[in-house]
Design a protein around this nucleic acid. Sequence first.
DNA 1: CACCCTGTATACCGATCGGTTTCCTCACAG
DNA 2: CTGTGAGGAAACCGATCGGTATACAGGGTG
Lengths: 190, 190
Amino acid sequence: MATTDKASPRDRLLDAAAELFYRDGVSIGVEALCRSAGVSKRSMYQLFDSKDEVLAASLERRRPWYEAQLRSPDSETATPRERIGYVFRRVEENAAAPGYCGCPYLAVLVELKDGEHPASVVARAAKELLQGYFEEQAEQGGAADPALLARQLMLIFDGASARAGAHIEHLDDGLVTRTVTTLLDAAGLK
Amino acid sequence: MATTDKASPRDRLLDAAAELFYRDGVSIGVEALCRSAGVSKRSMYQLFDSKDEVLAASLERRRPWYEAQLRSPDSETATPRERIGYVFRRVEENAAAPGYCGCPYLAVLVELKDGEHPASVVARAAKELLQGYFEEQAEQGGAADPALLARQLMLIFDGASARAGAHIEHLDDGLVTRTVTTLLDAAGLK
DNA sequence: CACCCTGTATACCGATCGGTTTCCTCACAG
DNA sequence: CTGTGAGGAAACCGATCGGTATACAGGGTG
């Protein structure tokens, strides 16, 4: 889609994989995946050992981008409260976009019930990273129990992502940010 | 499994479906499903039009049980706050049980990205029912904004279910009930 | 030119998918 | 006893699954 034709087969494959796995689920076939990427199955199996590895690699590839997206741009001047708020404003924005299907990492963890799956490992790491970021900010902001607050924020993050992705909740009225504010206040975050 | 051999093929089928779809996901095959239920494919396709209908019916069948399970036993004397707290204590208990895979309705909604799927309709109804229950209790308890509180509680419910089901969170230390208490307090629930 | 090296296209593999059909057994009604 | 209908066992259907192998086209480099 956004992938140029001059990109390497590997990049085309991973970009197509990220999009298709996200939109259609992990049960999308190798045939359809390769067709969409403009890459032959031969090349795919030359670059990766299995479809599972492609899925894992596509998640891994998106991680830095996903991470950067949640990081407040005015990272230097912002307060911890602002940085946390920024994450959830992004969630509300993303959820409103057409084609939103929730957090891709959580979706993969739910779809692949197997926690040993290579893609599950990547997804779990992404989740832990965000939780670590929350905890860091909570600590910096003087929260009474930074670890607790971080876990609470993850509950909201994943609950909101899952429900918006399943289209049983609309986050366009500040539900998430208001809820987060309540938790931040209760935690004593400056 | 727990199903007796004297149960009707329909009941055996739906019980096996509920268990297998929950544990292994919706991509489980009809062959395995029928084998596990001790029912021939012939009978299955005589009772239902398609595998999708079996899935939907199995969710529908579990709904009254699921619902009753979340309803406080001392329904008459309990306060709204106690009734809401009861739901989340059940979540914490269930999540600790081996083989827990999260809320089956949310899992189905995530796995079947198609919101028009018959099973998605059933799952969505189950979710709306719980949310309605929350809203009812919130109103009865004098919450400032009952609809808002109900939606907040659903965020926690689904976030906790999904994360515990994906085994990236353990709810055995009261994380959920403590978070809920914070929200109930902020909402001014008596 | 020949020689690789990538990469595409495609046929193919055995297994499984959702779904249909045939056959046969067994319980019960007359 | 015979008839009848329910239901299990299993063959079978075309399609698709993940994965492999063969054949061929284009672009460097000697």
